[in-house]
């Protein structure tokens, strides 16, 4: 079983919820937020494996190239341009699709690899931890996310997703069986939660909500859950203590005042996802 933790809005507590739930449930933690992966700050695993993530981009053999421009015409990502007596390659725009080689009749194109990020894995206490890291300045996170998720061993995983609702999240959702949406009770949190709900619905997977920084009141997120019959797995309180533990990079589930809360949420999640 793979469960995605997502939110729409950034900074609502995906990582807090995923790391603490993974520890509580005793399942693997996967950090897919490859642009800002910081789950390992809390879990602090000892890294056992590191590998680069490569994508390919074309290089042109000037001796064979007849400057017909067919490759540039075939490229739908503007990664190739004919400029005077040269074909210019914008390697960061290349989506590694292979169309340019098919288009080149002069056999002047070949592909070379370049690294855009890394995968790391290790153990923290009893659980396996995996993460992808996108190099700073790289525009495409999808190849890193895809490789990370594709190579996971068959076991139970909590997948900490990137914020937003774009292809980075969509890629992650393709590999999961259920989803937990984390939000905060603010106009902003609710606004982006609705977008995330719309996205999850497209996948026909079971899902539920956890409210972080919960004020204990009948707030707008709880009203939304009731009105739309969305399951609420639980809340993480808006408290000085929780914020203080978080700011120090400490786990809530290891604190006596918060442990029980995570055990309760874990039970509800297992029941809802019949897992």
């Amino acid at each position: 079983m793979n469960i995605a933790i997502l939110s729409g809005k950034g900074g609502t507590g995906k990582t807090t919820v995923s790391t603490n739930l993974a520890m509580t449930l005793g399942v693997s933690y996967v950090d897919c937020d490859v642009e800002e992966p910081n789950g390992f700050i809390f879990l602090n695993p000892s890294i056992q494996k590191r590998e680069d993530v490569f994508v390919e981009y074309p290089v042109i053999d000037q001796k064979k190239c007849v400057l017909c421009g067919a490759c540039a015409k075939a490229c739908q990502f503007n990664a190739l341009a004919k400029a005077g007596k040269e074909i210019v390659v914008f390697e960061k725009l290349c989506h590694d699709c292979g169309a340019c080689r098919l288009a080149c009749k002069a056999d002047a194109l070949s592909y070379v690899k370049r690294s855009i990020g890394k995968l790391e894995s290790g153990m923290a206490k009893e659980i396996n931890c995996y993460r992808g890291i996108l190099n700073v300045g790289e525009p495409m996170a999808v190849p890193v996310i895809r490789k990370l998720l594709k190579e996971l061993p068959k076991e139970d995983h909590l997948v900490d997703c990137p914020p937003g609702t774009s292809c980075n999240v969509v890629t992650a959702l393709k590999y999961v069986d259920a989803a937990i949406l984390v939000t905060e009770p603010s106009e902003f949190g609710l606004h982006d939660l609705k977008m995330a709900v719309e996205l999850v619905k497209l996948y026909n997977i079971p899902y539920g909500i956890i409210i972080n920084k919960d004020d204990g009141q009948d707030n707008m997120v709880k009203t939304f859950c009731k009105a739309n019959e969305v399951k609420l797995f639980g809340t993480v309180p808006y408290s000085m203590e929780a914020a203080s533990l978080y700011s120090k990079g400490m786990m809530l589930c290891e604190n006596d005042n918060h442990k029980k809360n995570f055990i309760n949420m874990a039970e509800k999640i297992k029941e809802a996802f019949t897992w």
Binding site: G8, K9, P163, G164, T165, E187, F188, H191, D192, M195
Partner: peptide, 8 residues
């Protein structure tokens, strides 16, 4: 553009 909410 992924989650624009300044307009709120």
């Amino acid at each position: 553009v992924d989650a624009p909410n300044l307009y709120l």
